[in-house]
Amino acid sequence: MAKFTDVLLVEDDPITVMVCDRIIKMSSFADKVKSCENGKIGIEYLLGLDENCCAPTIIFLDINMPIMNGWDFLEEFEKIKWRFRSLPRIYLLSSTVDPEDYKKAKKFPLVQDFISKPLNREALQNII
């Protein structure tokens, strides 16, 4: 029995997507993993879900992505979150070392934590 029903992974690097998908499944973190290659696709995916359904339980969000980066995604999500019965917990997944990014993350209440790449089992175990 997996810990969470569904996870959305917004990440442009295909290797990272592959690796994350594998780890999540192997560690029975979630049954369903959906990945989107940038923020824009992520938002479009969420808009495609039924109104008043539950949003993905967990979102892993990369910051540096083309077209719409992690921060843009967070701003856009704020605008559409009313559609969902329950809101996701968002984890930023990044290799950033810029302290500005940590500061910026605090502006978004939905962001739970920063997870430094690579995503590993220990990090997943810490998410309860």
Partner: peptide, 13 residues
Amino acid sequence: SHNLRAPVANLLS
């Protein structure tokens, strides 16, 4: 450092 860490992280994963 970010951009160097990203591929390294991939390799580690």
